[in-house]
Write a protein that binds this DNA or RNA. Sequence first.
DNA 1: GTTCCACAGGAAAATATGGAGG
DNA 2: CCTCCATATTTTCCTGTGGAAC
Length: 332
Amino acid sequence: MITDPRALRPAFVPRDLHHREGAIETLSTALEPISRGRPGDHVLVTGPSGSGKTTLAKYTLGRLSESAASARWGYVDCWSDSTQTGVLHRLARDTGVGMDLRREGTPADRYIERFRRCDEQVVAVIDEGDLLDDDRLLQTLYGTPGVTLVTITINEDYLLTDIDSRVASRLRGTSRLRLTPYSHAELVDIIASRADHGLREDTITDDAVAKIADIAAGDARHAIGLLRRVATRATGTGRDQIDRGLIDTVVDEGKPARRERNLESLGTHLRLLYDIVAEGGGVSASTLHARYEQRAADPRSERQCRRYLDRLEKYGLLTVSGRTSDRYYELP
DNA sequence: GTTCCACAGGAAAATATGGAGG
DNA sequence: CCTCCATATTTTCCTGTGGAAC
């Protein structure tokens, strides 16, 4: 049934990007000076998950490097590389500016120096920028000549408050590009297009496409992931047709599995804290810390726990309410 | 209104990590 | 195997804030 598995992956960048023409235009305009060897405007791209931020950036940069052969660009997903060195190393490799630099033991300055000296314009795409554990890196990059930043975040306010006030004077200009969730009709179109590319003809009913779009609620990543799982499932069970019923089955099975997988990658302490919160459905700060101390084999300090909890919140694994004594942690 | 408490989160100092070079 | 280097992680110390008790 599946003819091209790549087309069913959320990370796939299609040859033509539909329904984002305005955004492509805006981003291209901001980066336009680069094709003339001058720095572009920094851009902050925001929008809810699955609204096409990453795809938009990759697509536009791909087009840019076709027209401006000398431009170099790098892409980092802060979910996988969130430390200063991690980000710089990946950027240096992607752009070919620092292939020879080791990941460990290279001072951040040396990377910056390379970018500064590079004759060509460099575009750095920082995806999931709000997961970055140290925002000084962004400030440094903002201030590095020859580097144009395209920062992608879900949360609109996050970077603006911090960065704007502190390095406002050094910023030439930061354009903002705000993506809204896909409409139902757009999502239907996107799913159908992926199905066209990735599946044999006539294997999915219009009805089923609409249902996937409904479930995904504007989130294209979710929609495409679901399409892939459904298609895989259909293949596995020997069906040649995807209908609404099959989608129900897959959705029911998929839910717990997905969260589990996210949790797998958590370290001992993060995991323990998460478990404690999950057990009671929610806890206050004091009980959380008390239980943690009691159950951890090698407990970290309270301060460190707060840092862990910050991270869990950033990852979207738990939510925090209340500022001080009414602080309360619970599952989203 | 003042004081006390619980907690958040910043800064700096201390410690752990992991590759390179002796 | 040991030490150095640069970074990453954790601890220690500290300030600030909101709410409750006084």
